[in-house]
Design a protein around this nucleic acid. Sequence first.
DNA 1: AAAATAATAGTAATGATTACTATTACTGAA
DNA 2: TTCAGTAATAGTAATCATTACTATTATTTT
Lengths: 128, 128
Amino acid sequence: MRMTRQRRIILDELRKTKDHPTADMLYQSVRRHLPRISLGTVYRNLEILAEAGMIRKLEFGGASRMRFDATVSRHSHIRCVACGRIDDFPLDPDLNPEEYTAGINGYEVLGYNLEFYGRCPACKAKVK
Amino acid sequence: MRMTRQRRIILDELRKTKDHPTADMLYQSVRRHLPRISLGTVYRNLEILAEAGMIRKLEFGGASRMRFDATVSRHSHIRCVACGRIDDFPLDPDLNPEEYTAGINGYEVLGYNLEFYGRCPACKAKVK
DNA sequence: AAAATAATAGTAATGATTACTATTACTGAA
DNA sequence: TTCAGTAATAGTAATCATTACTATTATTTT
Ligand SMILES: [Mn+2]
Ligand SMILES: [Mn+2]
Ligand SMILES: [Zn+2]
Ligand SMILES: [Zn+2]
């Protein structure tokens, strides 16, 4: 993977913020450094950087757009139901989701979504 | 809310299955009873039924399409990473997510996503 | 029955993401 | 230092699930 000027700046801009910007938000800030970059390049590089494990791609249920995160260590998020803002939500491995009542990051916690992923019986059987 | 023929059949078809069909899958099965129904009507009624609390609308991170569920009581789901199939995943309120290692529904559990929602400090301040 | 209202079928628009393509930039031998 | 091979880019078009629009039809109320 070549670290092109475009790729470098996209990564730097993402690392600058504690937000979890969309591709388009990132496109806007990268454009201040590279006015001729295209949105497609931003998408492609975010995908490649995520693939390489240098950033994380976040897709929330209910929200239409993907978000990107420079923090790759495992953590959860909390989304404001009013404005859509997304903040980090550090997990305590000893707590179950019901027990997070304290207002982390100043948020009022209203609820959570928990979904699992895995391999179904049929797909397990197929490839072993 | 009028219980039209279309709305009734959409609800019935959803209740017939333990799957978590997309709007289009439902559209296909409803069409066997009402060949002239439009996809827009299916979407609109699913929205209205969800609003009324008669069904649940599910939106998973990573999956592009919304899913619908006739079971309205609180439960989680597990998605097969290979084929996209979605099954119910009953939650034990005393367990934290890490502890679901046993293969529920015959699934091999690979991981989970946990996201919270609430109101951020700014939005809390705004409307009280 | 007439008027008011709700819902529908069919179609168009939306919008985020992905795909395509001709051009440009980098790389690493000869 | 060429020069071929490859990777990446800018710009644009396509995709596709969902939503919006609109003229018509169905149901309820008066
Ligand atoms: Mn984060
Ligand atoms: Mn379910
Ligand atoms: Zn907010
Ligand atoms: Zn499967």
